[in-house]
């Protein structure tokens, strides 16, 4: 199935998605990777308010390449980064916030339970940064630029951002885990 969704996402938007479906997203997405995740958790632990809302948000695991022009920031290249690095921090992030979709590449280990009934994981083709940049229409704002260009939180307006493959759905089906399990069995056969 193919779906075109608009942000902010509601729970019913994502509950209908099944692993293997194709999704396109329009609206606002936020980039966040290692350092931004760490800072979000740190601030929440201290009870501080984040400078952006994560209500119905779509988090994009991406460290974009941006260019500053007279008319503000421009996206040069913005493909997904390896989501696996955020595996440990994501459950805490999801507990405190209603993030409804995570876009990244490569899947995340042992995360299906934390996503259950809350959030979907959408796989975007790794390395396809030039393609992604075409679908990002505007850099709305940037937070935490002190973390460096790749690690800052960039708020982006996208149109039909995709194709995204539902890698992990809200029912706990995880394509990456299934593929890994099959590969593991194949490996054992070889030994």
């Amino acid at each position: 199935m193919e779906y075109h969704l608009k942000t902010p996402l509601k729970l019913e938007d994502i509950e209908k998605l099944n692993a293997g479906d194709i999704v396109y997203i329009s609206g606002e997405i936020l980039t966040a990777r290692d350092e931004a995740h760490a800072r979000i958790l740190e601030m929440e632990e201290k009870g501080e308010k984040l400078p952006f809302s994560l209500e119905g948000a779509v988090i994009y695991h991406c460290g974009p390449l941006m260019k500053q022009t007279e008319n503000g920031w421009k996206v040069v290249s913005a493909g997904p980064t390896t989501s696996g690095r955020m595996s440990k921090m994501t459950p805490s992030l999801l507990k405190a916030n209603d993030v409804r979709a995570i876009i990244g590449k490569g899947g995340m280990k042992s995360i299906a339970d934390a996503l259950k009934n809350r959030c979907v994981y959408l796989a975007y083709t790794g390395g396809c940064a030039a393609l992604a940049a075409e679908l990002i229409k505007e850099v709305k704002t940037v937070h935490w630029l002190d973390l460096g260009m790749p690690e800052a939180v960039w708020v982006l307006r996208v149109e039909d951002f995709g194709p995204l493959i539902v890698g992990i759905d809200t029912k706990g089906t995880d394509i990456f885990a299934e593929v890994r399990e099959k590969a593991q069995k194949q490996l054992e056969k070889q030994e």
Binding site: I22, L65, S77, A130, P163, I165
Partner: peptide, 28 residues
């Protein structure tokens, strides 16, 4: 078919990078 769609995205990405003269991946 899922893998094929991913490979097609890669090939399309290569075309766009060449056309616009931009890096093919943001991790340069």
């Amino acid at each position: 078919q899922v893998a094929k769609s991913q490979l097609q995205a890669i090939l399309k990405n290569l075309e766009i990078a060449k056309k616009h003269g931009v890096p093919m991946c943001q991790d340069t």
